[in-house]
Design a protein around this nucleic acid. Structure first.
Lengths: 139, 139
DNA sequence: CGGTATCCAAGAAGATACTG
DNA sequence: CAGTATCTTCTTGGATACCG
């Protein structure tokens, strides 16, 4: 699976000297597992989702983490929050165009993860095994 | 910048019911800022890098975090560690083929971050501003 | 040079209880 | 339903010192 794509190395966030470079803060938005899961779920659903619907779709997430994740995504303009003033309240979360772009990236990560999970699991086992034998081999 | 690409939704990590799904652990490899930065730097350099060379290229990283990050990447088979038994010791880190694939993903993330940093920064400011006025508007 | 070991502080994250 | 608030736990990460 050769994913050779056009690159733009000039000025990428990796090269910046300043620790507090704004583009880094943007990279770090996606460097968060719940952000990836939420974006991936919303993208897959391809429709606005309610809070508890999202919660059920994300095994292991707590209410606090979901709220927190959705707030930062809303703040960054990746997710739009729409409140219907009904009783009981209805709140829907949807990807913005920007969020949909980010969702494409999470999809690529998910696909990559899925297609290499066995390879990586095998590598982990081999590494952990080598740690058990190598120290003894030094004696 | 429309990054419309072929999708494969079937069986993606977002849908799995089990909390401890292996593919999730692979997604979470990339959900780490130092992992993204290290992969991005190694990919950009396109050559093996020494420990302190990598360190200098990553402003803000501590020795501990760099060591830790490189270990997990080596364990997962994304980075190859080569030791030259010289004095002083020389250790080189290079991307494996698998790591290079992951590097492509980090490049996409970096490109996306760079091209939308202003948009996101603006969104953040607007959100923070709305928090100052809205609560007062309720009175 | 390229680490490891240890200690410690700060923040992330979980559990629980309560509310419009 | 969709949160907020609080408390506690626990991991992450930084600082420092030392080693082959």
């Amino acid at each position: 699976m050769d994913t050779t794509l056009a690159s733009s190395d000039a000025g990428s966030p990796w090269t910046v000297p300043a620790v507090e470079c704004p583009s880094r803060t943007v990279v770090e938005v996606l460097a968060n597992k719940w952000v990836l899961y939420v974006l991936g779920t919303l993208r897959q659903e391809a429709a606005p989702m309610r809070f508890n619907q999202l919660r059920r779709a994300l095994p292991g997430i707590t209410q606090k983490m979901l709220t927190q994740t959705l707030r930062t995504l809303e703040r960054d303009g990746l997710v739009a929050r729409k409140v219907y003033p009904t009783v009981p309240p209805r709140v829907e979360y949807a990807l913005t165009p920007l969020g949909h772009e980010a969702g494409q990236l999470t999809m690529l990560i998910g696909d990559w993860a899925l297609s290499h999970v066995n390879q990586i699991l095998t590598s982990r086992e081999a590494f952990d095994e080598s740690l058990k034998s190598e120290p003894a081999a030094l004696n």
